[in-house]
Design a protein around this nucleic acid. Structure first.
Lengths: 207, 207
DNA sequence: CACTATTGATTGACTGGTCAATCAATAGTG
DNA sequence: CACTATTGATTGACCAGTCAATCAATAGTG
């Protein structure tokens, strides 16, 4: 059954996806009802959702697939493979921090993390397109820098986590647990210190 | 109304708490029904839950309060305040990794993080007794070591996240996203590398 | 020591309500 | 007019929490 107009169809679909993201971010996937979604998306009826999506889980999957902004960042990171860490890492951090400051990133992160926590299918889907792919690319990059003698040699997957871990800890303690001591530290400051420490720890033995 | 037998009462209560933890970890707080909990706890009826707990949220709170194994670790960490990092950090890591190997730790982490994501009351409760307190104690310890000249001086809250972050990243990528590359790295290895890197990065400038 | 009263523990049925999903009817469009 | 888009009512499942009734252990009594 071809849709009446390809563009209208896609616009409507996106409208529902964006509304669903708002609703999921506000209430979580389970607690956001189709009525909530319909209201957030400004469509007249919950029933319409089923014209565009198989079911609620399908809608969640489409939201995740089409709204994960990390994907472009990971792509751009892939282009930096041969630049030395002192340049490439701050550049990546700058892009990442820029993304964090935008609403959809935080919203989608909430949804994705909460849902990955208890749904293995979502977790592996998310991992494939987002964090998993990102970590793998980062590890490849670090390994190449080790080969080039610019970093001390070690398991690159461990090294990737040494680099990314502090930022994750910063985000969890700051954004989720809202610990007051860390609120006064700016993201840029945290990124700078993390990279500095990483490079210090990973300096080649000869240096 | 005192219970017939204090021990029986407490045993039953714990039985329900453990069952609830299993159910919450498997399905999440909202999706786990009282029937699920009753089955997991091997009690005959969902109604019995209300003999021991005010409501479902009260049950969640009790699960978190009584099953967060981090609490003892934090207590023991407080005793190490004056020992040098080369001794104290591996000791803390050993205890932490021991906890990670046990099922309840990962289960409770799943529940707690997912729930903190959308419930600020739970988030701050959790933060007060677990991660928040732990991070604060760690920061105090690190600051004291900086004062003693055993570590390079920097914001101790950032330093605490530099140390703990990689372990968190290791847990999230390994246990929640189940990324295969990191599965072959043993927790002990990860802890050792993290501490080594941290000490390298934090070595006093003069050294 | 036998018998009964009392009390807490446990059950299963029930209630008011919510929700995802379906569907028949209608509006709109090419 | 043929076909899609949209609506709103409906269905059937399920759920948190309540409650009356039953069960089992203990305490009290003569």
């Amino acid at each position: 059954m071809p849709p009446r107009d390809e563009h209208d169809y896609e616009d409507r679909r996106q409208q529902i996806i964006r509304g669903a993201l708002d609703a999921f971010a506000a209430k979580g996937f389970d607690s956001a009802s189709n009525k909530d979604i319909a209201e957030a998306a400004k469509i007249g009826s919950p029933g319409l959702i089923y014209h565009y999506f198989r079911d609620k889980v399908d809608l969640l999957h489409q939201v995740i697939l089409e709204q994960m902004p990390l994907i472009e960042i990971i792509d751009s990171a892939e282009a930096m493979m041969d630049r030395p860490p002192e340049e490439a890492l701050p550049e990546m951090a700058r892009k990442l921090m820029g993304a964090i400051h935008q609403w959809p990133t935080v919203a989608i992160a909430r949804v994705v993390i909460a849902e990955s926590m208890r749904n293995k299918r979502v977790a592996s889907m998310v991992s494939d397109i987002g964090p998993g792919r990102g970590m793998r690319i980062l590890a490849t990059y670090l390994e190449r820098q080790m080969d080039a003698g610019r970093l001390r040699r070690m398991n690159p997957h461990i090294a990737a986590r040494l680099l990314v871990g502090p930022i994750i800890a910063y985000m969890i303690t700051g954004y989720i647990f809202e610990q007051p001591e860390i609120q006064s530290v700016l993201p840029e400051e945290m990124a700078k210190q993390t990279i500095e420490s990483f490079l210090r720890a990973m300096a080649p033995d000869g240096a």
